[in-house]
Design a protein around this nucleic acid. Structure first.
Ligand SMILES: [Mn+2]
Ligand SMILES: [Mn+2]
Ligand SMILES: [Zn+2]
Ligand SMILES: [Zn+2]
Lengths: 140, 140
DNA sequence: TTATGTAAAGATAATAATTCTCCTTTAAGA
DNA sequence: TCTTAAAGGAGAATTATTATCTTTACATAA
């Protein structure tokens, strides 16, 4: 995604446009691997050697709160960040920390139709996400 | 679940039977709310005032590794533990830290049938779990 | 039944991830 | 250009978890 686009998204949300925010947004897009805050920090530091870890966390929080990024749960202690904010699911590796995106509108429809007919007692569904656990093949 | 049952499960797995292990297993069963290590510690401490937090973590790890408990991912920093080790899904509250179990064999079959016919490129599925996010109603 | 080896428990330090506090800088609008 | 609120940087603090080291006690066999 173009920097100018990211800039517009920030403005749209009433957030100040700062080099750090642009850099962090770009980093998550470029890394494209559900990076941790640490990974993002290391990447951004190349161009912004004075950026602080606290800034990374504060910016990530703000971007997630405004829907420009999303958070992904992981088995490990650290949070993972995601440039994809559209509805999608995740493939989790059972033997590494790899997480991959999984888009499937067919299954979205199956689930949405199912839960339209079978509602859960005392629970109002807002979103349904799949955690697909398994092994990535052809990795070298 | 009876203490004697828990004792047998430990023996079956070749784990030494200790009062701490029994107490922690019982605690997770009794709390029945996907408790954190801290919550488990507080509960167990009533009967075992000398138990250490390190023991709680070590025992939880051992029990999870041996399939007597399971772990549940959460949005927050801390892990949650689950007495239910059978296949099931989770309802996550979008406005609190509540997590509830959700069993549904019908949907298990739908998903398993679906993925039997539509396999994911370069990925071998081991398990599919639903994260159902929404709001619990009738809570007081 | 007691002795003994080993796995586990307890105390506490260390580490890792995240948040907070406080001060300085800067983006954006007047 | 000036003003000001919002954001960034440095580092301390907090929280969750893990590691290390010593002591205890479960399990088994003499
Ligand atoms: Mn943490
Ligand atoms: Mn941690
Ligand atoms: Zn994703
Ligand atoms: Zn559960």
């Amino acid at each position: 995604m173009k920097t100018i686009k990211l800039r517009d998204k920030l403005i749209e949300k009433g957030l100040k446009v700062t080099p750090q925010r642009i850099a962090i947004l770009e980093a998550v897009h470029k890394l494209n691997s559900h990076p941790t805050a640490e990974k993002i920090f290391d990447f951004v530091r190349k161009d912004h050697p004075n950026i602080s870890m606290a800034t990374v966390y504060k910016v990530l929080d703000a971007l997630v709160a405004n829907g420009l990024l999303s958070k992904v749960k992981s088995e490990k202690d650290s949070m993972r960040y995601d440039a994809v904010t559209d509805k999608h699911h995740h493939l989790y590796s059972s033997d590494s920390e790899d997480i991959a995106d999984y888009y499937n509108d067919e299954i979205n429809k199956i689930l949405s139709d199912y839960f339209k007919e079978h509602n859960i007692t005392d629970f109002e569904i807002e979103d349904v996400r799949l955690q697909i656990i398994g092994k990535f093949k052809n990795r070298n």
